[in-house]
Design a protein around this nucleic acid. Structure first.
Length: 430
RNA sequence: GCAGAGAUGGCGGAGUGGUCGAACGCGCACGACUCGAAAUCGUGUUACGGGCAACUGUACGGGGGUUCGAAUCCCUCUCUCUGCGCCA
């Protein structure tokens, strides 16, 4: 959500921003908001005036009663009752206008950064920096499920029986590798000065509706039957929810947090050949980073965050690149965003393994995350950012494809060995 | 899960229908004193919204109700504490 003052003062600027995102359908919304805002204030002003009168009358009644002038008091009561009818009416009108205004405001996209490339959709995203040259392989890389099976690392048949499509059993060395990657990523972030958190894996509906739109909720979130609880789709949900409606002291910023959680997603409507296997699934685990900082620092942290992910992947000797999200592909809450993509030697292309976003104050405004600015003495909205550290098992696809050797073994890079009992490679069974 | 008690500003904590946006204390800010500081004294200090302003509205865990008027009474939800029960 953007600041309504920006729409009042500079509607043209807001419209330009909407055009940049190719959402021309929303241009009329800006004028609608200006009109709604005006009516809302008119209702509010009339209501305020009447309420002021009511307060005064109530005071008068109080003093008359104390003096024992009952009849006079009764007369004023009557007047007040009439007054209250109009107040109730205005309250309804104001609430309705406010609700409509809020819905419209939610649909207005955040102002995007000046350096966001302009483009219609994901086909126009722009390649940023590339890290590590992909190694030329002298043999064909099999589909990741085949690699997993050769290592006796996965049991999808049983998972389909117990839980259905989109679930998996990871087994043996692969299960251990999965945990090793998460543990290494956790320690990596702790070494960068981040605070490690394990958040709740279920959150209430008011938190869910705070962090996402109704449509997103329908398509993603699993609800617990008979409870007002949802399984989180990412730890960002509970991590950001932690700060809802709070005022942080300035010296507690920046909050640099790294959280671990399983993530649960319905993935409604997702399909496609490359999404078989463990690419798109209902349950995975993720190490995440979250930063809440002062507005002037969010650009700095954005650069830092995505570079941490790059550093983590290159330390595991996996080639990655940054893919800069273009204006049309940028979610409405985002100021700027980029994906970190890992090289797939089998597909000979990069695929997404993480996503870094600076939401500026849009998320904070929506959720009421503020800090006390010592210079102005005011409570102001903080900036929020989030980024994937690493999310297995999807990340394991990149790992296995890049580290598979011609003899069928899988190379374990030195940084992971302490978490793998010193193993230097995984060897196929049989 | 059952029973009882409770939820008030940045914090502690008064307040049980009108004079309460809230005593008092702590903290914080500014000023005085001082060569400087501590101590002391004085002043200020809830948030959000509307209005050019004067000013004004709303909010005492959330929601609803009673009343001319609710921090205060009623209903409901959430959370906390104490005891019991259950459990890795």
């Amino acid at each position: 959500m953007i600041d309504i003052n920006l729409i009042r003062e500079n509607p043209q600027f807001v419209k330009e921003n909407i055009k940049k995102k190719f959402q021309d359908k929303k241009l009329d919304l800006v004028d609608k908001i200006i009109a709604l805002d005006k009516t809302k204030r008119e209702y509010q002003q009339e209501g305020d005036k009447l309420r002021a009168q009511r307060n005064e009358l109530a005071k008068k009644i109080g003093s008359l009663m104390r003096e024992g002038k009952k009849e006079e008091a009764e007369a004023i009561k009557k007047q007040s009752v009439e007054n209250n009818e109009r107040v109730a009416e205005l309250e309804k009108l104001t609430a309705a206008a406010e609700a409509e205004l809020k819905t419209a405001m939610m649909a207005i996209p955040n102002i995007i950064a000046e350096d966001v490339p302009i483009g219609k959709d994901d086909s126009q995203n722009v390649e940023g920096k590339v890290f590590l040259e992909p190694k030329q392989k002298s043999f064909d890389i099999p589909y990741h499920l085949d690699i997993l099976e050769s290592l006796n690392g996965i049991d999808l048949d049983s998972a389909r029986r117990t839980s259905g499509n989109g679930f998996y059993y990871l087994v043996g060395d692969i299960a251990r590798l999965h945990s090793a990657v998460l543990s290494y990523a956790r320690d990596f972030m702790i070494d960068k000065g981040f605070t490690y958190c394990i958040p709740p894996y279920m959150i209430r509906s008011d938190v869910v509706s705070g962090v996402m739109s109704f449509e997103e909720m329908e398509g993603m979130m699993y609800k617990i039957e008979g409870e007002d609880l949802y399984l989180i789709g990412t730890s960002e949900h509970s991590m950001i929810g932690r700060f809802m409606g709070t005022v942080l002291s300035e010296n507690s910023l920046p909050q640099t947090l790294t959280s671990y959680s399983p993530c649960f997603r319905k993935e409604k409507g997702a399909h496609g050949l490359e999404e078989r296997g463990i690419y798109r699934i209902h349950q995975f685990e993720k190490q995440e980073m979250i930063v809440i900082c002062k507005p002037e620092e969010s650009e700095y942290w954005y650069e830092k965050l995505w570079n941490y992910t790059v550093e983590l992947f290159t330390s595991m000797e996996i080639p990655v690149r940054q893919l800069i999200c273009c204006s049309g592909d940028l979610a409405d809450l985002k100021y700027k965003s980029c994906d970190i993509e890992a090289w797939s030697p089998r597909q000979k292309k990069y695929f997404e393994v993480g996503s870094c976003s600076n939401l500026t104050d849009a998320q904070a405004r929506r959720l009421g995350i503020r800090y006390k600015n010592s210079k102005t003495g005011k409570n102001e909205f903080a900036h929020t950012l989030n980024n994937t550290v690493v999310a297995p098992p999807r990340m394991l696809i990149a790992f296995l494809e890049n580290h598979l050797q011609e003899d069928g073994s899988v190379y374990v890079p030195p940084v992971l060995r302490p978490y793998m009992g010193g193993r230097e490679k995984l060897v196929p069974k049989k």
